[in-house]
Simulated assay, not measured.
Amino acid sequence: MTDLLHTRTDGPEDGPVLVMLGSLGSTLAMWEPNLPALAERFRVVRMDHLGHGASPVPPGPYTMKTLAEAVLATLDALGVDRVHWCGLSLGGMVGMYLGSEHPDRIARLALCCTSAAFPDRSIWRQRIEAVEADGTAPLAPGIVEKWYTPDWAELHPDVVERAVGWVSDSPDAGYKACCEAIEVWDHRDRLGAVAAPTLVIAGDEDRSTPVEPHARTIAEGIPGARLEVLHGGHLATMQSAEETNRLLLEHLA
């Protein structure tokens, strides 16, 4: 049996379902700045990735198919068929996979600060080897440094400290297994199969998945996709939460 993911559900029981899945190294808590506005209208189901947070940590390596099947099994267990999807980074990759390979399950897509492929895979091999050598915790400050712009991070040290904790507390085996899924990820030739109306959100100072080439490739590859660039680092949905919420409510309406 496929492992079921840890979830939290907010909003009206009879509302349209919006699934939110976040970044590598995060937990479902990363969506808290977006939750109040979205949960007024949607039944928001936030998830921890496989190998992350309070979700199970089965042996790796994982593939994007592995991560997506855990999502589908969890939705099935919740009795949910068709959903809107908002995913950031790794969560966006899972959303892309579902959008092309399980189009019947996705009504509308929002893909935030994410990528359809990393031409230079060596960065992921280096991170995998670093986790194997010393675990995830020593990497946390450097990873979170890319999540927010320096000026915003300076004004919100409590947010930064909490985010470092998310990464530090990530199970080493689960984090590594998800890195292995990203290392081999290349969905560029399947973007044209995504039928759901798609909003691509990018951060103007995202050093992990910058607009060029990552967001642009997705927006040009998915038929009819729309690209919006917000101020922020890799977690622009947190840093520019109000603008993100406006775009999501407009797109998902």
Score class of each variant (00 low, 15 high):
Val131Tyr: 08
Cys112Val: 15
Leu28Val: 01
Asp172Ala: 15
Ala202Asn: 02
Thr149Asp: 07
Cys86Leu: 15
Leu248Met: 08
Ala130Pro: 10
Ser170Ile: 04
Trp152Lys: 02
Ile128Lys: 10
Leu4Glu: 05
Ala195Leu: 10
Ser23Gln: 03
Ala110Pro: 11
His251Ile: 04
Leu28Cys: 01
Val159Ala: 12
Asp134Asn: 15
Asp206Val: 05
Leu227Gly: 09
Arg8Met: 05
Met20Thr: 07
Ala225Gln: 12
Arg216Trp: 01
Asp169Glu: 14
Thr7His: 14
Val17Gly: 04
Leu235Met: 14
Tyr148Asn: 04
Thr149Lys: 06
Pro103Gly: 06
Gly135Thr: 11
Pro197Gln: 09
Glu243Cys: 01
Gly221Asp: 01
Glu13Asp: 15
Leu191Gln: 02
Gln126Gly: 11
Met47Asn: 01
Ala177Pro: 08
Asp48Pro: 05
His231Leu: 11
Leu35Lys: 07
Glu145Ile: 00
Glu220Phe: 04
Ala73Thr: 05
Gly233Cys: 10
Glu145His: 14
Val200Thr: 03
Ala29Ser: 09
Val211Ala: 10
Val57Pro: 12
Gly142Leu: 09
His49Leu: 11
Pro16Phe: 08
Val94Thr: 13
Gln239Gly: 08
Glu129Gln: 15
Leu24Phe: 04
Ala54Lys: 13
Gly174Arg: 08
Arg207Trp: 09
Ile201Ser: 04
Gly224Met: 11
Asp204Trp: 02
Pro223Lys: 11
Leu90Met: 14
His156Ile: 09
Val83Ile: 15
Trp31Cys: 04
Asp14Tyr: 07
Thr244Leu: 07
Ala70Gln: 11
Glu132His: 06
Gly221Tyr: 00
Pro58Val: 10
Leu38Trp: 10
Ala117Pro: 01
Ser100Gly: 15
Thr149Ile: 05
Gly51Pro: 13
Thr2Trp: 01
His84Tyr: 12
Ala196Met: 05
Ala54Asp: 15
Gln239Arg: 03
Thr149Met: 08
Glu212Cys: 04
Leu235Asp: 02
Ser122Met: 12
Pro103Val: 06
Trp31Phe: 15
Asp10Lys: 00
Ala68Lys: 10
Glu205Val: 08
Arg207Leu: 15
Glu161Trp: 00
Arg82Gly: 02
Trp152Met: 07
Pro33Ile: 07
Ala77Phe: 03
Arg216Ser: 12
Arg188Tyr: 01
Val211Asn: 06
Ala219His: 03
Ser26Gly: 09
Glu13Ser: 14
Leu5Trp: 11
Thr136His: 04
Tyr175Gly: 05
Leu35Trp: 03
Arg216Pro: 02
Ala130Gln: 14
Tyr97Thr: 05
Ala181Cys: 08
Pro223His: 12
Asp169Arg: 13
Val71Leu: 10
Ala39Glu: 13
Asp158Ile: 01
Gly92Asp: 00
His52Met: 09
Leu38Ser: 10
His187Asp: 09
Pro223Ser: 13
Ser89Arg: 00
Gln126Met: 13
Ile123His: 13
Val19Arg: 06
Glu145Leu: 11
Ala163Trp: 01
His231Val: 12
Leu230Cys: 09
Ile201Lys: 05
Asp10Cys: 08
Ala225His: 13
Gly232Glu: 03
Glu212Ile: 01
Pro210Asp: 12
Val19Gln: 09
Phe42Pro: 06
Pro61Phe: 05
Ala163Val: 00
Leu249Gly: 13
Leu199Glu: 11
Ala241Cys: 03
Gly92Arg: 00
Phe118Ile: 07
